[in-house]
C-alpha cells in the first residue's frame, strides 16, 4: 500500500515537495503584487512560508479545516497581518466568512487566492468553485488552483473524495470564465555531475513539450495570464528510494515464490487425490471379485 501523505511536512519526499514549491513559486509574483493573499487549505503553513521566503507586505488569510494546523500556520507565516481561521470549504456560511475576510483584508482591491490540492479533498466542491468564480469576476481577485491527475494512473488515494483527470478538468473549465488559463504541471527526470564533497547550485535548461501532466493548474481573474514559473528540480534521495524499491522487489519475489510453493502443493494434493481415487476404484474391483 502506498504511504499516502497529504500534508506537506519536513518529512515529505523531495519529489512531492518540489511539486508544491513550484506551484507556490508560480503564485508568488502574483501574491506579492497584491494587497491580500488567501491560502485555502494552508495546512501548517510550511508551503506558504517557504514560498514567501521572507516577509509579506500585505495581509495573509490562512484557512484550513484543521484548527491545530491553522494555529501552526499563523506562527509560520511572516506578514504585516495574519488572519487565520478554520473553515469547512463545503459550507456556504464558511465560504461567506472567507469572502468577507479577504475583502476586508484589501478594501481597495488587489487580492489573490491560492487553492492548491484542496478541491479533490472536498465531498462537494460546487460552492467553493462558485466562490472562486465570484472572487475572480467581481472582487478583483486572482485565483490560482490545482488538482491532481489521479485518473491517469487510476490512483485510489483514500484522501481524495473525487476523481480528477483530464475529463473532470474539462468539466470544471466549463464552469469558469472563458479567459481562464490552464497549465499542465509535468514531472521531470534528470541527472547531474557533482565533484566529491562539493555542494553547488546548477542552472540548466530543459526542453518541455505537451505531455501527460501530474497536476492541472488553473488561473482566473486579473493577472491570470502571468501565472508561470521556471521548472524546479531537486536532488533525489537515492537511499530512501532504494529502500522503497528493494522492499517492493523483495516483496514481489517473496509473493512469486509463495505462489509457486502453493501451486506445487495444490498439484501434489490433486495428484494425491487422483491416486486415492484410483486406489479406491481398484479396491472396489478386488472386493467385487
Amino acid at each position: 500500500m502506498p504511504d499516502w501523505q497529504e500534508r506537506i511536512t519536513s518529512d515529505t519526499p523531495p519529489a512531492i515537495r518540489v511539486e508544491h514549491e513550484l506551484r507556490y513559486a508560480a503564485a508568488l509574483p502574483l501574491v506579492r503584487e497584491r494587497a491580500a493573499w488567501c491560502d485555502l487549505g494552508c495546512g501548517n503553513g510550511l508551503a506558504a512560508a517557504s514560498a514567501l521566503g521572507g516577509s509579506y507586505e500585505g495581509t495573509v488569510v490562512l484557512v484550513d479545516l484543521d484548527e491545530q494546523a491553522v494555529e501552526r500556520a499563523r506562527t509560520a507565516v511572516d506578514a504585516r497581518e495574519v488572519v487565520a481561521f478554520a473553515a469547512d470549504l463545503t459550507r456556504r456560511e464558511d465560504l461567506g466568512r472567507i469572502r468577507d475576510a479577504l475583502v476586508a483584508a484589501a478594501p481597495e482591491g488587489g487580492r489573490c487566492v491560492t487553492c492548491f490540492e484542496v478541491i479533490e479533498h472536498l465531498p462537494t466542491f460546487a460552492p467553493l468553485v462558485e466562490l472562486l468564480v465570484e472572487l475572480a469576476t467581481a472582487h478583483d481577485t486572482t485565483v490560482l488552483a490545482s488538482v491532481p491527475n489521479d485518473a491517469f494512473w487510476a490512483i485510489e488515494n483514500p484522501h481524495h473524495l473525487t476523481k480528477w483527470g483530464e475529463g473532470a478538468v474539462a468539466e470544471l473549465r466549463s464552469l469558469l470564465p472563458a479567459d481562464h488559463v490552464l497549465l499542465h504541471q509535468v514531472p521531470l527526470q534528470g541527472s547531474a555531475l557533482v565533484r566529491e564533497g562539493d555542494a553547488t547550485e546548477e542552472v540548466t535548461s530543459v526542453s518541455l513539450a505537451d505531455g501527460v501532466p501530474s497536476h492541472f493548474l488553473i488561473a482566473l481573474g486579473p493577472g491570470a495570464q502571468g501565472f508561470a514559473a521556471a521548472p524546479r528540480v531537486v536532488q533525489v534521495a537515492l537511499e530512501e528510494e532504494r529502500r522503497w524499491q528493494r522492499q517492493r522487489e523483495s516483496d514481489l519475489a517473496f509473493a512469486f515464490a509463495r505462489i509457486r510453493s502453493l501451486e506445487a502443493h495444490v498439484a501434489y494434493l490433486s495428484s494425491d487425490k487422483r491416486a486415492r481415487r484410483r486406489r479406491a476404484a481398484r479396491d472396489g474391483q478386488d472386493d467385487d471379485a
Binding site: 465531498p123 462537494t124 466542491f125 460546487a126 489521479d150 485518473a151 491517469f152 487510476a154 485510489e156 473525487t162 476523481k163 483527470g165 475529463g167 473532470a168 468539466e171 470544471l172 464552469l175
Partner: peptide
Amino acid sequence: RAWPSWEQAGTF
C-alpha cells in the same frame, strides 16, 4: 476506477 461517481457528477 478513475470515472466519477454520481456524487461527483451531481456536484458538477
